[in-house]
Amino acid sequence: MSRPLSGAQTLLQGLGATLLDKLAAFGRGFLLMLSLVVAMPAAVLRVDLLFKQVYVTGVLSLPIILTAGLFVGMVLSLQGYNILVDFNAEEAVGSMTALSLLRELGPVVGALLFAGRAGSAMTAEIGLMRSTEQISALEMMAIDPIKFVYAPRFLAAIITLPLLIIMFNALGVFGGYLVSVSWLGVDAGAFWSQMTSQVDWNEDVVNGMIKSVVFAVLVAIIALFQGVNAIPTSEGVSSATTRTVVHSSLGILGFDFILTSIMFN
C-alpha cells in the first residue's frame, strides 16, 4: 500500500475487493439460511409467532395479490382473444390464459408483488428493530433472535407465498372467464373444456407451485439478510429496503429462467 498504485492497479484492486465483498456476502447469506433451517423446528412449535407472521406477510398481501391476479387474467385473455380470433381459435383463450398464469405469470408476478409488499416490510422492520436495539435486547433477555424473529418470518414467507400465488392464479382464471365468456362471448363450455384438456396437473400446476416455493425462499432470505445487515440508521434501513426489492426482483427473474428451462424443456 505504501507504493503509489497505477490506475490499472487501483481498478483491478477495486474489482477484486468488490468481488471478495460480494463473495463474503453470499457466504453470510448462506450461513443465515443454514441457521434458519436449523431453527425451523423451533419456529414450527411457536404457533403464535408463526400465525402473526402469516397474518403480516400473507393476509396483508391479499388485497394487492387478488386485485393484480384478477387484472392480469383479464388482460391476458383480452390480448389472447384478439390474436386467437384471427385464427378462429378463440376457444383456446381459456387454456392460453390458464397456462400462462400457472406456468409463468402467477409465480413471477406474485413473487414480485410479494417482494415489494412483504419482503420490503420485513427488511425495514428488522433493520429498525436492530437500530432501536430491540434485537440486542432480545439477546440480553436470553432469547435467540434467530428463533424468535427471523425463523418465524422465513417460515411464514414459505407458507404464504405459494398460497398467495394459488389464489392469484385462481382469480386470474376467473378474470379471464369474465372477459372472454361474459364480455366477448366465447362459449363457456369450450372455454373450460379446452382448459382442462390442455392444463396438466403435474406438468403445469405442480411445477408452478415448485417455482413459487423457490421464489418464497429467495425473497425471504434476501429480505432477512438485508434487514440483518442493514446499517442501523434511517438511511441504511431505507437503502436496505430498496436492495431487498431490487435483488429479489432480479433473483426471481433469473431463477424463473433457470427453473423454466429445467421444467418445460
Binding site: 402469516v54 397474518y55 400473507g58 393476509v59 391479499l62 390458464a98 400457472l102 404464504t160 398460497l163 398467495l164 394459488i166 389464489m167 392464479n169 385462481a170 382469480l171 382464471v173 373450460w192 382448459m195 382442462t196 384438456s197 392444463v199 396438466d200 396437473w201 403445469d204 400446476v205
Partner: peptide, 19 residues
C-alpha cells in the same frame, strides 16, 4: 386465508387442470 387458498387450489385442480 388458508381456507381461501384451499378453495383456490380446489378450483384449479378440478375446474382448470386435468387433476
Amino acid at each position: 386465508f388458508v381456507l381461501m387458498s384451499l378453495m383456490a387450489l380446489a378450483s384449479i385442480a378440478f375446474q382448470v387442470s386435468n387433476f
